[in-house]
């Protein structure tokens, strides 16, 4: 671990100033960052500790809910409003990591979680994300964990988290504070595809800090988080599907789906939501949804199975949400 300076941010403005400095990273729960620092994937000269900022609250917000950036995953998952109105979020969080990690992990930190790509975490292998221009080890190497949607020649890593996938389906908004003021970004636009700059993973500018995630008015209906994995706990998703789907009569009145394990970001394809909304559920309709999801999917050998797996996970989720029989 590279020796580093520690600075505590006492006020939000202060945090932005400190974090904007060169060679500086912000730390909240540290569940991901400290691991990466031990491996020297991250070698900040300075850490800015955000934990003393007043950002841990979960409170009513217009007709929705505002989850502070420092609210822990556990606090969010057990919050009565979350459980009652956004059960998808609680389920996604509880499907991730372990209780010990969730007790430390924060909302903002979780959104900034780095990929699990094993070329990224191995400093003796090339990785364009860790060291721009060094090449992608996974592309011609082992791609078991890797993305099948939105990849580039530079990077085929996935965003590994669960919480953000649910937030993408729920159409959450990320609140950001920076030296130039505050702004809001739809969560669906917060993370970026790798393109030729895979080291840039989200829209945060230097010195910007996530302050909260807001959830809109509850949509009700069935909320399902299906996470496919080899073992039952502490495994990142091979494929995950977050679905918020409300039936009215025999038709789908509201459909919002997002996917994990498939891409460099929580994957949301508005065409799928549009396709489903207003329609009577059927296997044929679900097939079309899967066709849309996967029309540009590309496997890299070891991860080829993610494509049929995603199709089947989506289909099973829609059957579960609508009650259609297979």
């Amino acid at each position: 671990m590279r020796p580093f300076d520690y600075k505590r941010a006492e006020r939000l403005e202060h945090a932005g100033q400190l974090a904007a400095a060169e060679d500086t990273l912000a730390i909240a729960g540290g569940t991901n960052l400290i691991d990466l620092m031990k491996l020297q994937v991250e070698t900040p000269a300075t850490l800015v500790d955000l934990n003393h900022l007043p950002l841990a609250g979960i409170e009513e917000h217009e007709d929705g809910l505002r989850i502070g950036a420092l609210a822990t995953n556990t606090a969010t998952a057990v919050h009565p409003r979350v459980r009652a109105d956004y059960p998808l979020l609680a389920r996604a969080i509880l499907a991730g990591a372990t209780q010990q990690l969730r007790n430390k992990a924060t909302t903002g930190g979780n959104l900034c979680q780095r990929t699990r790509c094993w070329y990224f975490t191995n400093t003796d292998q090339p990785c364009n994300k860790r060291e721009p221009g060094s090449g992608c080890g996974a592309l011609m190497g082992r791609a078991d964990l890797h993305a099948v949607l939105g990849t580039s020649e530079a990077c085929i890593a996935t965003y590994p988290g669960d919480m953000a996938v649910a937030m993408a389906a729920l159409d959450a908004t990320v609140e950001i504070a920076g030296e130039k003021g505050s702004r809001s970004v739809p969560l669906r636009e917060f993370h970026l595809l790798p393109g030729d700059t895979p080291h840039i993973e989200n829209v945060l500018e230097p010195g910007e800090i996530i302050t909260a995630v807001t959830l809109p008015t509850p949509v009700g209906g069935k909320q399902i988080y299906r996470k496919v994995r080899e073992r039952s706990s502490y495994a990142f998703a091979l494929v995950s599907v977050a679905a918020a789907l409300r039936m009215e009569g025999e038709s789908i009145a509201h459909a919002a789906l997002a996917f994990g394990g498939l891409a460099h970001k929580p994957w949301h394809d508005p065409r799928i939501d549009d396709l489903l909304t207003g329609e009577k559920p059927s296997m044929a309709l679900f097939d079309k949804a899967a066709d849309l999801l996967l029309e540009d999917a590309q496997g890299y050998g070891e991860n080829d199975a993610k494509i049929p797996l995603a199709r089947r996970a989506l289909t099973a989720t829609l059957i579960d949400a609508t009650g259609v029989s297979a």
């Binding site: 094993w118 070329y119 191995n122 292998q125 011609m140 190497g141 082992r142 078991d144």
Partner: peptide, 10 residues
Amino acid sequence: LFDPRDGHLV
């Protein structure tokens, strides 16, 4: 799981 190109364990 081994990288087929250099035999390193991923």
